[in-house]
Nucleic acid binder design. Sequence first.
DNA 1: AACGGAACCTGAAAGC
DNA 2: TGCTTTCAGGTTCCGT
Length: 269
Amino acid sequence: MPELPEVEIAARGLRAWMGGRRIAEVRVAATRIVRGTSRGAVERLCDGQQVREVVRRGKWIRLGLDGGGALFSHLGMSGKWVVRAREEEASASERARFTVGGRSVRYHDPRMFGRLVPSLDGAPIAEWSALGRDPLGDGIETGWLGDALRRRRVPLKVALLDQTLVAGIGNIQATEALWRARLHPERRSDGLMAAEAKRLCAGILGSIEATLRAEEGGEITYVEEDRSRNPFAIYGRGGQPCPRCRAMLVRIVLAGRGTVFCARCQPPR
DNA sequence: AACGGAACCTGAAAGC
DNA sequence: TGCTTTCAGGTTCCGT
């Protein structure tokens, strides 16, 4: 599912396909994707507008339009931006279509958890304003992360999933970052030593960068669409040996989410 | 107030 | 073989 690296790749795609170009035609097919307002509102906002910039923060993308408005995009769990020839037929999961530069930029989202949110004056929507630091855009550093974690009293995994702390981390990146940092997902966030916060900071950035390298280029495939192409070290690998120490990877449910970790190199405390 | 769990969805995989 | 059930999880909402 889309987390920071996948959304970053989507933003790069949108920038290449739409940046500086005029939207000649818009069609939003699924009302559920828009929510709160009508699909017509999105169509009226974007129709004929030039895309001035494409910015990503966390798992959100903001398309800035030359008329002053903006369109915000969240991919939910199965959203994807793709480019197609204009004449190519719509797939069953197509929810919106933007004709730009002679090509067709399409939003696919089979499960429809994603959202397209119009902002008439370009002002940030509440979800965007609430986001914490973006590891790539803002950068994160050890001292800040350690302080922020110590102010909370939740399992580390829960803290990492909180978009108001570090924006863009989802279940996969949280799992991978904790493994890289050799930290147990249930360790309490207020009990971290400085050295551990340093490892976690490096783990977050390392995992995001590794995922970006593994997934960039070509059209993106989410791991649950094709499990044979799992680029992650331990996500989705419960019951298999830890790639670092060969102990059996354990899968638990934490905060309602599948959580894989190595009981040997991610000790409970 | 904070926290857990359900709901929202559909396609794929597992179970029978 | 084919139908049914379970699972996946980002975010919001609701009940305790």
